[in-house]
Design a protein around this nucleic acid. Structure first.
Lengths: 219, 219
DNA sequence: CCGGTTTCGGTACTGAGTCCATAATGAGTC
DNA sequence: GACTCATTATGGACTCAGTACCGAAACCGG
């Protein structure tokens, strides 16, 4: 996650292919599938990038053309949903209070997430034993979301609102949502509606920050 | 942070030295100092563990006897404060509502933190350029705190309270506190009272979760 | 066919973290 | 003092992620 260029974390856009050039022999998908298989067989830590590339029929360097780090493979589904966040924020109605808009946007994001899309590491917890690296890579996603929410809040809240409290609220809401999403993912087959779970989790936080974020009624 | 044994993250206890054995030639402190110097001179990424060990007059492997990972060096002061959390939780009065107890404990923890103790990476941000690794290592600390708070809440809250909401509340409070602490650390010399800042940040969260965490008044 | 552009693939390198075998040191014991 | 035992230090060898570089392959428009 040290990159800000094309490849890696948030670059799932399928190759703009501006002009010419050699075609991408092994579409990103092939690497994802190879990795998923190997992770199931040998676990995450027990799988090397060489093996992934080899099974995908590709050179080792090609792997790094598509992913910035091995740990990015653990968050594929989540990255798709995160990529939709900016659009959702833009589409959030403007007439409502900032705290309500925040709650609305995050719930909408959760609703957009495919029901079966559970990160590899969470759906196969036992054979993985990666907790640390998995979570560390997850923090990058957390920060992306929290940063986007903070910008959203700052734009909608009164100018008088302290910038720090905006970031605190954004991070707290993100943490609540992430916790609920994690519990949802770990619930296994009998998991229910992600949006409902996330909504229940963030509602208290939004309520708590509402007095400071929302404009006072003029009365 | 892959370890649960003596060394690493949370082992700042100064050598119980139960019985005999070769003396610890280079007390952990020497390594910390050597690392701090080198980080200032060359930045975090530009400093290798070999260099740190060499300046401390110690073999490379000895470094790993005291720290589980290079990134642990970035969080020395924070680890000290986190180590005090269990004691603070135990000392929190039992007569009050769980949400108030949570707020009280976290504020007390912040109050205990030494005023000048700012993590290396935050106090010297420009020359470091490590944001990613720094934050990833920080997540381990976050989880330690959040887990402790969740256990605390679970013990104090009504039995009827959903376990997930307890974890959501603990994580949201931890996120709020961490955000405020980060802003405090980045504020530079004119930073004020950490406990006050943290208190302001977590109060809305605690207030928001109070209806679900605290026992209903019998009336 | 030719320049331009992009990807592919190999080699080589750095550095973190692990493993292991061995040496050094000290405490307790006889 | 000699012996044993536990603890720590140290060095060598190893794996693997991630980076840098370069030449070759493949496609594009002209």
């Amino acid at each position: 996650m040290t990159d800000s260029d094309d490849r890696g974390t948030n670059a799932r856009t399928e190759a703009p292919r501006s002009r010419g050039g050699r075609p991408r022999a092994s579409s990103r998908r092939t690497l994802e599938d190879a990795a998923s298989e190997l992770f199931l067989e040998q676990g995450y830590a027990g799988t090397t990038i060489d093996q992934i590339a080899q099974r995908a029929g590709v050179g080792r360097n090609t792997f790094f053309n598509y992913f910035a780090a091995k740990s990015d493979l653990l968050w594929l589904d989540v990255d798709d949903t995160i990529a939709a966040l900016p659009g959702i924020l833009d589409a959030t109605p403007v007439g409502i209070d900032p705290s309500a808009a925040l709650e609305h946007a995050v719930t909408a994001l959760a609703a957009r997430h495919p029901h079966g899309a559970v990160p590899i590491a969470l759906s196969q917890r036992e054979p993985m034993a990666t907790h640390d690296e998995f979570l560390a890579a997850g923090l990058s996603r957390f920060l992306l979301v929290a940063h986007a929410l903070a910008g959203f809040l700052a734009a909608r809240a009164d100018d008088g609102v302290d910038a720090t409290i905006v970031r605190v609220a954004a991070n707290a809401v993100t943490a609540a949502a992430a916790t609920a999403a994690g519990a949802w993912a770990l619930a296994g087959v009998e998991r229910g509606d992600l949006a409902a779970d996330v909504g229940r989790a963030i509602a208290p936080v939004c309520r708590g920050f509402a007095p400071q974020l929302d404009p006072k009624p003029p009365a």
